[in-house]
């Protein structure tokens, strides 16, 4: 059984920027796979190589065993891509958009599946509305529909929930999960680490065009069996300031490697006579792992969001 996606030593340079610096990656059929990394890590470039939108300088990529250049027809038939940009063709209605996209794949008489897509994406009432009249979230869902219109076995979603409100996000994920249960391979990039943690069985982390971590989500979480302290205080002890992962709503989140380290933090607070407003301990989450792997200085500026 060929891998859903196989990437071998793919490099790509844009002028002075080495966007991809030798990526090796294999995603098996049926996986729910996460591709994470800060902006500029190369996620979208890698997806574009898979989709044939960008050509690799060296190396090769295959979708279900079909080379994306030499056998591009079979490769593209097997792949559905939800692009990151919110693009649409203002000349057409939602249904026309889906019918046309279906036709590009050579599939006509696709009305039954298009109706099902419209239903699952909650677009039924907008089927005959012009694309221009849709809200951002609806346009995003049409993009998902366009990617699925030819029932691709491998589905790549590049930031699919950006700009989609919470309720719709839930129904979108329910649908994607169903597709995954039905045997579709899902590859996801997202800025919401919480989503990746909840959905992805395996995760690759990219940094500066390289894979810096590749493991099951479970292993990644247990590899850093650490803790996060949520602390509300007037200030943070000077020695502990570099350990602050993020600040949110007046609280500081401090990463600990072991429970024993808590002793030191409390001691520092006592010594510097800092009053504790609130203190809570949290298990390791993917964000902690992500920040650890990406390295604090860069990750501090990385626009990854954790919604709690």
């Amino acid at each position: 059984m060929p891998a859903a996606v196989e990437v071998v030593n793919v490099t790509r340079r844009f002028g002075a920027v080495q966007a991809l610096a030798g990526i090796d990656l294999e995603v098996q059929q049926g996986e729910f796979f996460g591709l994470l990394g800060p902006n500029g890590a190369g996620k979208t470039t890698l997806i574009s190589v898979l989709a044939g939108l960008i050509r690799a300088d060296t190396g090769s990529a295959r979708i279900l065993g079909h080379d994306v250049i030499a056998d591009y027809r079979a490769a593209r038939r097997a792949l559905g891509v939800v692009p990151q940009e919110l693009v649409f063709d203002p000349f057409f209605t939602v249904r026309e958009t889906l019918e046309i996209q279906s036709g590009y794949f050579g599939i006509r008489d696709n009305a039954a599946w298009i109706d099902e897509l419209l239903h699952h994406l909650d677009l039924g009432s907008k089927a005959n509305a012009n694309m221009r009249s849709l809200s951002g979230g609806m346009k995003r869902r049409v993009l998902v529909g366009q990617a699925l219109v030819h029932k691709p076995p491998v589905i790549v979603l590049d930031e699919p929930t950006a700009g989609v409100d919470v309720e719709l996000r839930q129904s979108l994920w329910a649908f994607i999960r169903k597709l995954n249960r039905d045997g579709h391979t899902i590859i996801l990039t997202t800025h919401y680490l919480e989503e990746a943690e909840a959905l992805c069985g395996r995760i690759a982390m990219l940094k500066a065009g390289k894979v810096v971590a590749l493991d099951t989500t479970h292993n990644l979480l247990s590899r850093f069996a650490g803790l996060t302290v949520r602390l509300v205080a007037d200030r943070i002890p000077a020695l502990w300031q570099p350990r602050v992962l993020r600040q949110e709503g007046g609280a500081s989140f401090i990463g600990l490697d072991r429970h024993a380290e808590l002793e030191g933090l409390l001691a520092a607070l006592r010594t510097e006579r800092i009053a504790i407003g609130e203190l809570a301990l949290q298990e390791t989450d993917l964000e902690y792992v992500f920040l650890k792997i990406m390295g604090a200085p860069e990750a501090a500026t990385a626009p990854m969001v954790m919604r709690r």
Partner: peptide, 17 residues
């Protein structure tokens, strides 16, 4: 128009030769 609005991607993703 397709290039500027970005929707040319809809034509580039399918297996059109």
């Amino acid at each position: 128009q397709s290039k500027i609005t970005g929707n040319l991607i809809f034509v580039l993703l399918p297996p059109l030769s």
